[in-house]
């Protein structure tokens, strides 16, 4: 427990010193194209000492150092991928706010499509079964009339 408290203190100390101010004027690159790339890159890199902030949004000193590193490498002619790889090599994939597609994230990236397909299949199945139950009972005309007669309350008669 004591250890947790202490560690909390370390991290709190780092965070507390950083009201959000982000990019400083002296960091900005002359070349607007490079600067734009730097901004885009730093928006996708997580500030590891902060909580759910990108290094672009954070004024933690480490975030600032990383912003400067990103810009230096851009000026040195690195591609976006090289820069991302550079940071990942040091801090791990945890820094990527846009996680890479790999074995660890298949479920994350595939999940949304899976849920949607599952939902659509369920719906199709449900509609078909309902249609079948209804058709087994009554012809569409009868079904329609019955519904009207029942004041659109439902089709209990057709449900077998």
């Amino acid at each position: 427990m004591k250890r947790l408290v202490l560690l909390g203190f370390v991290i709190a100390a780092v965070i507390a010193a950083s009201p959000v101010k982000a990019v400083e004027p002296n960091e900005i690159l002359e070349d607007p194209k490079l600067e734009q790339r730097a901004r885009a890159l730093s928006k996708d890199l997580r500030c590891v000492v902060c909580q759910n902030q990108s290094i672009d949004d954070s004024n933690a000193s480490l975030a600032r150092d990383l912003r400067v590193v990103v810009r230096e490498r851009l000026q040195a002619g690195d591609t976006d991928k090289q820069i991302i790889d550079f940071v990942v090599a040091r801090y791990g994939e945890f820094v990527l706010l846009n996680p890479r597609v790999n074995a660890r994230t298949y479920l994350l990236w595939g999940g949304p499509a899976l849920v949607l397909i599952f939902g659509i299949l369920g719906l199709v199945f449900w509609f078909r079964r309902r249609g079948k139950i209804a058709n087994d009972g009554l012809s569409p005309e009868e079904e329609k009339r019955l519904a009207e007669l029942l004041g659109q309350t439902g089709t209990e008669g057709s449900d077998k």
Partner: peptide, 14 residues
């Protein structure tokens, strides 16, 4: 002094 070597080590806390 610049903290660059620390970045190469992946340092994030002290």
């Amino acid at each position: 002094r610049s903290g660059r070597v620390a970045i190469d080590w992946g340092v994030y806390g002290y």
